[in-house]
Design a protein around this nucleic acid. Structure first.
Lengths: 233, 233
DNA sequence: GCAAGTATCATTGTATACAATAATGCACAT
DNA sequence: ATGTGCATTATTGTATACAATGATACTTGC
């Protein structure tokens, strides 16, 4: 075998490749993501019935993947299933979104605290790079990229927390409010401030200051909530 | 032969709306709960492969309900599914349990805070009754009942928080650690102290003192963690 | 003897068939 | 005209059949 230092060809021990729990490439995964998007984007009305055959026909698949997707969405709370009766949309309201942000404000704080104890040098480097590159893209108004970098920053901290449970939960919430985050980070002013807050959190983590890191990460989310309110969301 | 298959068909008790998202009376629901219990109780080894046909045969059902159950467990994080390959146990470790308690310490605090603002008179009465009755059963060492009452107390607060999201999440965590809670409350000393803490939380909520309620609910869980450590868990 | 390629098998992914349950509408009695 | 009961229909629940993919073992060429 080759001892080449180039990683790019070799298999890079990726036990957890996909961020998403549900894979994107199976029919079930696609149906799942599609319905979820349609619920989160408001395409389906609240309490609307989701019939397996209808959705199946619409997406060109059979009932089986649709059923599996609906059962998963039930567990996520986005769909309400009444046995032998049907599946009904149970979307997230404005209040739900607000609740998620408040919950996140606590859990992001906890994640930052734990990250202080367990973060690796590679992860710190990734965060530093993230903040630096984000600054560039904010200047260029590359909003798509900004959102992706924001996700990556938070996900890195989730992972650095060393808690599978916390990482899993925060990832889910993070995805839930993705639509909202896109709007929030669409304002250059907020994007800039957000990245400054990221930098401060990073410094606290680098300094292994758990109390401060928790406080800053907590305030980062509170600050986001305030911004959303300012935008009338 | 009147084993698994017939057990489920005979269940006729209803009337009560299930706390669990997943209904208990469909095959899928039964399979789901069964596998979950088996993972949480440690019957399956970590990373053990869960083959659809094997489990199906074992429970006397076809692959379909098993698949659906596995897909749901994947979303709960208890099973890791590699597309086209298989489903693998991803159980919760001692550390996971500890993490859950710490996470809960924050979220229970938040639930108590929110409950101060939104709790109804009926819910307050239910909590008062709960504390009173618990005291009785603690004296009688009715440990089964004590655990149920403990669950009911917390679930009532979750509901009183008025947050669908928070309620859903805390319920899930609460169930996750049910096995541990049974052990914890099995010591009379802890059961007694726990109920006193419940009483204090209730008083804070009745007084609509959000800061205090949050603090007490938070400390209630921290206190539980300390007790678990004392028991070597 | 060993490695590469291939055949075979095991297992999952998807579709469809059949069964059970709930919803709907119509006939009929009052 | 209306309410009840039955038949019909629509929809979900479960089982099975078939397709696709990955794992395994064997063969074959060297």
């Amino acid at each position: 075998m080759s001892d080449s230092k180039n990683d790019l060809a070799g298999k890079n021990e990726s036990d957890e490749v996909s961020k998403e729990v549900t894979d994107k490439y199976s029919l079930r995964g696609r149906v799942f993501n599609r319905i979820r998007e349609d619920i989160l984007s408001g395409k389906y009305a609240e309490n609307e019935e989701l019939k397996e055959v209808s959705i199946g026909n619409e997406l060109g698949v059979s009932r089986t993947p649709v059923r599996e997707a609906l059962r998963q969405l039930e567990l996520e709370g986005l769909v309400n299933i009444i046995p032998n009766k049907g599946a009904y949309v149970h979307g997230i309201s404005q209040k739900d979104i607000h609740d998620i942000y408040v919950i996140r404000s606590y859990l992001e704080g906890l994640a930052a605290r734990w990250a202080c104890e367990r973060i690796t040098d590679e992860e710190i480097e990734a965060l530093e790079e993230n903040v630096y590159i984000s600054n560039f893209h904010i200047g260029k108004k590359h909003y798509e990229t900004i959102v992706e970098l924001d996700s990556a920053f938070h996900e890195t901290i989730y992972k650095a927390s060393g808690s599978k449970i916390l990482e899993h939960q925060l990832s889910t919430y993070h995805h839930y409010v993705e639509r909202i985050r896109k709007i929030s980070l669409g304002r250059e002013e907020r994007a800039k401030k957000s990245n400054e807050e990221h930098a401060a959190i990073l410094e606290a983590i680098k300094g292994r200051n758990g109390d401060l890191a928790e406080k800053l990460a907590h305030e980062h989310i509170i600050s986001t909530i305030a911004n959303l309110n300012k935008q009338g969301l």
